[in-house]
Design a binder for these strands. Structure first.
Lengths: 127, 127
DNA sequence: ATACGTGCAAAATGTTTGCTCGTTT
DNA sequence: AAACGAGCAAACATTTTGCACGTAT
């Protein structure tokens, strides 16, 4: 199964992680690239994707894809769930995670390592 | 906000819904197209997407995107959550939905109409 | 020294849109 | 008749890959 391989400690990868951390919420690959670039470090998009894949493999980062839109990446250590407005697309993190650690009726032998939960509906302004 | 518009009752749209219903689980747009086609009715992919968007607007269908892979669509009336293996990618529906109707700390005024929950980890065979 | 990271451009996916014409209401 | 659905091809956005070279371990 997934060996939690460690990733190499390069300057760019540090900056990618730092950008996600500084954001405090989930970012898309493009946003990450832009933020790192804005701080004076040019970086290829492919590099961002490869770094994110490595981080995810290592269990550092979790990915969330909110229906259709680009996938977002956040620190696994700062897991949180989301509420998404179907109309305007805005989404907000939840403080409390309302899901159980593991479902009651998972397949036998399945080891749950995480989850991803999004509530959707319509925000006050869009109703 | 989203007026639950009714969609027109065309032959193709009926077949799309029937395909999803017959499958009993979430399908991708491509799978739907293939199944409808296999039953002798050629249909364009754009048509499938537009129909699904209309169904979603009408609240008939819900969409789920399991990290990276293509978005899957299922009947909203037969909502269920999933368990996904990070190694082999196989996923299974859960009988019981372990999420609450709505989170405690959603933004005020937010009306929750649904959710989407996926547990992930490693299945018995991949561990 | 070796395995891994990076950039670039190209390719592969998945999804949406413009236009024209057909069908439902 | 009017509004919406369908088909096709082109456009789009996102993500992945091949290759040549650089860097961390």
């Amino acid at each position: 199964m997934a060996d939690p391989k460690r990733t190499r400690n390069t300057h760019k990868r540090q900056r990618i992680l730092r950008a996600i951390q500084a954001a405090g919420c989930h970012l898309t690959a493009g946003e990450i690239r832009r933020r790192v670039g804005r701080d004076g470090l040019a970086i290829g998009l492919a590099t961002v994707y490869r770094a994110l894949a490595a981080f995810a493999r290592a269990g550092l980062v979790e990915s969330v894809s909110l229906g259709g839109r680009a996938t977002r990446y956040g620190l696994a250590a700062e897991h949180h769930d989301h509420v998404v407005c179907l109309e305007c697309g805005r989404w907000q993190p939840l403080r409390r995670c309302p899901a159980p650690r593991a479902p009651r009726d998972a397949a036998p032998g399945f080891r749950v390592t995480g989850h991803r939960l999004e509530f959707f509906g319509y925000c006050g302004e869009c109703r």
